[in-house]
Design a protein around this nucleic acid. Structure first.
Lengths: 190, 190
DNA sequence: GTCGGCCATGTCAGCCACTGTCATCACGCA
DNA sequence: TGCGTGATGACAGTGGCTGACATGGCCGAC
């Protein structure tokens, strides 16, 4: 018999999201989350750097997805780079996950501290992309603009995906946003 | 004789930046900042919502600048909107302020919490721009992409402006970034 | 098989960010 | 002269977060 149940991290995450839904971020203490997971407050902070971090799992694998897509870009044209980086992301957001994403998003929107954290994660992703682009030989300003645009398109698509009345798949929405982005910038030029 | 010296807010800001430079964010307590400004910790929190906020003054006037520029856009073409929104911002960053901006930036870069806060401020600015664009009749996706691009160009220009060996004015740099952004997206299209 | 190290967890004490509440005291105004 | 107002102080309390040390199953070495 194990002294401790396995999956402490997952239990903490599940307990946190449940309690946040019920009482809001500020209405729940870390000690309460830990107790609901059968652990102590101190153990919570061994798994998560702070109270907010419990809602941001799997960030590293997520970033890897963009990098792997980028490697498959056929040339250094900005549009090619952006399209390639976005290509493999949709698998992270299957339809089964949409409701969970919506629940999580409701919590995030209710507390500016969560928005800060999410923005920092996106920023870290952008920085990772910039680094990869520079290593590919893209000049710094172009790398920055390409990476920021990847983030913009992804975020726009994600927001649309979890909108209340939306039923299209993530891939479909993202392709549409990308097409519209491209159209906006090539139309009506003098 | 006044019971209290005036300019409590400014004294707190100045004390904070001095102490952060010397000891780092984590090496300074709010009580110490307040004492250096001749006030108490409780008064600090009457002026600033939290310890980080002391390094983010004047955010609202800053956002107004973008909005005023946007009003002057001649038409609803995305490039026109972006160019107009960026036009009036340079006056916020005269050359005299460059060293101060560099000092502040050094502090911000040293602590992820500050980066979070800065990202939240930028995000709030983007949201403000999106709202204004929608009220102008721009469709939601176009509004989002235009607003995000304004933020991207501004941030890219600001980063370049405070780079160690940079001497060009903010306006000059921003115009250059904008031109390069435009060039990147119109060149090499099939 | 048992011994000893390893590692996840617990326990405890403490710092400090942040808040609510009430008191204080200069100033302006009637 | 008295009273309201507004900025500040004083003080106690909550809770996020950390460091240091203890505990007790597991697992490999011998």
């Amino acid at each position: 018999m194990a002294r401790w149940q396995s999956g402490a991290r997952e239990r903490l995450q599940a307990a946190a999201i449940d309690l946040f839904v019920e009482h809001g971020f500020g209405g729940v203490t870390v000690a309460e989350i830990a107790a609901a997971a059968g652990l102590t407050e101190r153990t919570f902070f061994r798994y998560f750097a702070d109270k907010r971090e419990v809602l941001f799992p799997g960030h590293d694998e997520f970033a890897q997805n963009f990098l792997h897509g980028l490697e498959k870009a056929p040339d250094d044209d900005p549009v090619s780079l952006i399209t390639a980086a976005l290509a493999g992301v949709a698998e992270f957001f299957p339809d089964e996950r949409r409701d969970w994403s919506r629940t999580r998003n409701t919590i995030l929107q209710a507390h500016p501290g969560f928005q800060e954290r999410e923005l920092l994660k996106m920023s870290s992703l952008t920085a990772t992309l910039i680094r990869a682009l520079r290593e590919r030989g893209i000049d710094p300003i172009a790398a920055a603009l390409v990476a920021e645009t990847v983030g913009t398109v992804f975020r726009t698509a994600f927001t649309a995906w979890i909108a209340e009345d939306e039923t299209r798949s993530f891939a479909e929405i993202q392709d549409d946003v990308l097409a519209r982005w491209h159209g906006l910038l090539t139309a009506r030029r003098s």
